[in-house]
Computed example of a mutant assay.
Amino acid sequence: MDLVEKFDAKGKTGGAYHVEVYQTALEEADKAAPPGLKTYKLADGRALDPLSDAKFKIVQTGEKIYRV
C-alpha cells in the first residue's frame, strides 16, 4: 500500500489527530485487496472507519473525529 494523503482531524473534546490514507496500488492488488481500496489510519497505527469524507470513527475507542 502507498501513502496517498495526510490530514489533521479533531475530536469533540478538541483532541488533535493526524490521519494517514493508504491506497492499494494496481500492481499489488489481489482478491483480498481490490485495486484502489483506501485504508484510513491514525499516525499511531490505530484503524479508522470512514463515515463520510470528513467524519471518521476510531475503531479501538469508538470516538468520532472530524477532518479540519
Rank of each mutant, 00 (worst) to 15 (best):
M1S: 12
D2Y: 11
L3F: 00
L3T: 01
L3N: 01
V4N: 09
E5Y: 04
E5K: 07
E5R: 04
K6G: 02
K6T: 04
K6F: 01
K6M: 03
F7W: 01
F7M: 02
F7I: 00
D8S: 11
D8M: 10
A9M: 07
K10L: 15
G11I: 07
G11Y: 07
K12L: 15
K12G: 09
K12C: 04
K12A: 11
K12S: 09
T13K: 13
G14S: 11
G15L: 15
Y17F: 02
Y17P: 00
Y17D: 00
H18M: 10
H18C: 07
E20D: 10
E20A: 14
E20H: 10
E20Y: 05
Q23N: 07
Q23K: 14
A25W: 10
L26W: 12
E28A: 14
A29S: 15
A29R: 09
D30G: 12
D30R: 09
D30Y: 12
D30F: 13
K31M: 14
A32H: 14
A32S: 13
A33K: 14
A33T: 14
A33R: 13
A33M: 14
P34I: 04
L37N: 08
K38H: 06
K38A: 06
T39K: 13
Y40I: 04
Y40D: 05
Y40C: 05
Y40G: 03
K41G: 00
K41A: 03
K41D: 00
K41Y: 00
K41F: 00
A43V: 06
D44Q: 02
D44S: 06
G45S: 11
G45Y: 08
R46Q: 11
R46K: 13
R46W: 03
A47Q: 13
D49N: 13
D49C: 05
P50I: 07
P50W: 12
L51K: 14
L51R: 13
S52A: 07
D53Q: 11
D53W: 10
A54W: 15
K55P: 02
K55W: 06
F56M: 11
F56K: 03
K57R: 15
I58R: 00
Q60W: 03
G62I: 01
G62N: 06
G62C: 04
E63F: 05
K64S: 08
K64A: 12
I65N: 00
I65L: 04
Y66P: 00
R67H: 02
V68R: 11
